[in-house]
Design a protein around this nucleic acid. Structure first.
Length: 655
DNA sequence: CTAGGGTTAG
């Protein structure tokens, strides 16, 4: 027996040898050479097997060298070579193999064309993939599908759909793979145009051709509608599915979570456990379920789920652990998140990012920076998200100088070029700290096109510091960039209202209505005894409303005696003071706080979640209540945590 | 050659 690695083809050539590869199907070929003593005179120059062995060993360079001596390479030889190039992500070798293949007359082989397209796709060389397709005359459905896949992965969704149309015109029938790719293409588009309409058309094709019985295709449909935010379409497809498996259930649960319907997500998970035997939740399912708990700040639910994860032995899977850390942090239990993190055997960037952002939303900016540095010390390179997380933490904590330093270190030390998100964080850091001009300057000096994130960040800061002029500039851009985002109109209206510019408020509201949009209604949640209760602002239909209102009136009267003046800036109507006070008193988080006071015992922390930013009045009222009733109150707004205790808030009134 | 998932933001 000879060990392969010691021989170049040249030295081997001088020996009489053959490659011994038993062709029995049960055994894999033996990757070694033997001398062929039975026939020493006739050199068996079949290099094919040698090349294939080398490919399987990952010795691509040697395989290429052998290739130049092989007069009759086969299709299989090239297939293995191509796969090797993908695995070793070497574009230059890939091009080499491609050239060889053309010289050997395999350039019109549709099977190899498919493989080449896949290879170029994995090597991020989409132009080459396209070229292979263009030059292949006999295009089997495999060749079409390969290009669809490559283009979709590269984000060229529109191009896929154009090609798909052409394919239909020529009369080439789609197969089940085609449908999954073109459905994915509808959402994989770099342009902002919604391809929902096209997606629905393809859905119709699928029905017409009877492909709606295939679980892969229907699951892809569910996911496509989910990504378009069409929850009811997704659930319709899901309900109609003749066959469901773990993946389809997971896709539907993820759909609910991604679209802000965490309640439904948990409900569907329950149904999945209770009603199916063959779809047992796996780690992917659990990640979405944990996100649902996190979204609702449903700590008790989360703990139950954690127990389930332990029982199912899914507790060593990295994505699950990261999601657990985030869940605990977002449920207000930073310590538990830290504990889970500490017990991890292996950590990747994402685990670290989870912890960094956990400290960030709790306002512990310095700690977040420390963990960030610790991550680097442990040899884990920060990702884009790491920087968004640290910068976000700086912003919550008002750490302007630290933020600037982190931002500068991005390119200088880590060779990561800031994206729109990073710029948005910087604008936020400076803007919140009332350095609005500096924030605006950041936008002017950006090296990439300032997207809506950046302008939105600036507008948010203008709101906090009541800068009408800059707000008008930012919103003008925003209304162009994302005309259908209701939040932007509301922010501008807020700013006008605060400046008592009521005509302008009306004008912006009309703009909002003209687009068919609405102000997002404020909602709050509270979990009491494993049950999550929801409150809407001025919630007339809530069964507890009278009791809650009575308590709030009582509290507010007592507060007023101690000097509390209701802050009604958040009310967008030019009403008289009493009317405004009544509205502010009905804000959803106050209802939730009142419900918590009534339904939990004295020593218990009240935990509340809100879908919007905390308004100033709610903030000062909650501070007061925490002192007056001697209760700890934890409120998570859209962005961060507020920990109220003894009349002060952990955010230091900076939020 | 097919489907679902982790970390961010305002």
């Amino acid at each position: 027996m000879w060990a392969l690695q010691f021989h170049t083809p040249h030295t081997l050539r001088s020996l009489s040898y053959s490659v011994c590869t038993p062709r029995t199907s049960s055994k894999p070929p033996i990757c070694s050479l033997t001398l062929n003593p039975s026939n020493p005179t006739k050199p068996e120059t079949n290099y094919n097997h040698l090349i294939q062995s080398l490919c399987k060993q990952g010795s691509l360079k040697q395989a290429l060298e052998v290739l130049s001596h092989e007069p009759n390479p086969t299709q299989q030889t090239y297939e293995l070579l191509i796969l090797s190039c993908s695995r070793q992500s070497s574009l230059s070798d890939g091009l080499d193999v491609h050239r060889h293949l053309v010289d050997a007359g395999f350039d019109q082989d549709p099977f190899l064309a498919t493989k080449l397209i896949n290879m170029y796709s994995e090597l991020d060389a989409i132009d080459n993939a396209r070229k292979v397709f263009d030059e292949t005359r006999k295009r089997t459905i495999y060749v079409w599908n390969a290009l669809f896949r490559a283009l979709t992965l590269a984000g060229h969704g529109q191009e896929v759909l154009d090609l798909y149309r052409r394919m239909n015109q020529i009369g080439i029938p789609s197969d089940r793979f085609t449908y999954t790719y073109v459905l994915k293409a509808c959402v994989a588009s770099e342009s902002l145009i919604s391809l929902l309409h096209t997606g629905k058309e393809i859905h119709a094709h699928i029905l017409r051709h009877g492909y709606d019985s295939l679980v892969h295709i229907t699951t892809t449909l569910v996911d496509m509608y989910a990504r378009f935010g069409c929850v009811s379409y997704a659930s319709y497809v899901f309900n109609e599915m003749p066959v469901r498996n773990v993946v389809s259930w997971s896709a539907m649960i993820a759909c609910y979570v991604k679209n802000g319907r965490a309640f439904e997500a948990l409900e569907l998970f329950r149904e999945m456990i209770l009603e199916t035997q063959d779809s047992i939740p796996n780690s992917v399912t659990m990640v979405s379920v944990l996100q649902a708990c996190a979204a609702l700040a449903a700590l008790e639910q989360g703990k139950l789920i954690h127990g389930y994860i332990l029982r199912r032995g899914l507790d060593s899977i990295l994505p699950v652990i990261s999601a657990l850390v985030t869940m605990y942090a977002r449920c207000g239990k930073l310590e538990l998140g830290q504990q889970v993190f500490d017990q991890m055997e292996k950590r990747d960037v994402v685990s670290w990012n989870s912890l960094i952002s956990s400290y960030g939303i709790h306002g512990c900016g310095k700690r977040a920076i420390k963990i960030f540095e610790e991550m680097i010390y442990h040899g884990v390179s920060p990702s884009h998200v790491s920087f968004v997380s640290v910068l976000g933490a700086c912003s919550h904590a008002g750490l302007v100088e630290e933020g600037k330093m982190v931002f500068e270190s991005m390119v200088k030390q880590h060779r990561i070029y800031p994206s729109v998100e990073h710029y948005a964080c910087m604008v936020d850091i400076l803007g919140r700290a009332n350095q609005l001009d500096a924030a605006a300057k950041i936008i002017e000096e950006m090296r990439i096109e300032p997207g809506p994130e950046v302008w939105g960040s600036l507008l948010g800061s203008c709101r906090i510091h009541c800068n009408v002029e800059l707000a008008e500039r930012a919103s003008r851009r925003l209304f162009e960039l994302e005309p259908m985002n209701a939040g932007n109109y509301v922010l501008l209206a807020d700013i006008y209202a605060e400046a008592s510019m009521w005509d302008e408020v009306k004008r912006v509201k009309k703009l909002l209505e003209a687009r068919g949009l609405q102000k997002i209604p404020g909602r709050s949640w509270i979990e009491v005894k494993r049950h999550v209760y929801t409150f809407a602002s001025v919630d007339e239909t809530n069964p507890h409303i009278e009791q809650l209102h009575a308590l709030l009136v009582k509290l507010s009267t007592e507060m007023k005696e101690q000097g509390y003046v209701p802050q009604t800036k958040a009310v967008l109507y030019d009403l008289d003071v009493e009317e405004k006070e009544r509205i502010v008193l009905g804000h959803s988080e106050k209802l939730a706080v009142a419900f918590g006071l009534i339904n939990t015992s004295k020593g218990e922390t009240i935990r509340i979640t809100k879908n919007l930013r905390l308004c100033e009045d709610c903030h000062s009222v909650t501070k007061f209540i925490s002192k007056f009733t001697d209760r700890e109150i934890l409120v998570r707004d859209v962005n961060r945590f507020h920990h109220f205790k003894d009349g002060i808030c952990s955010c230091g009134d900076y939020w």
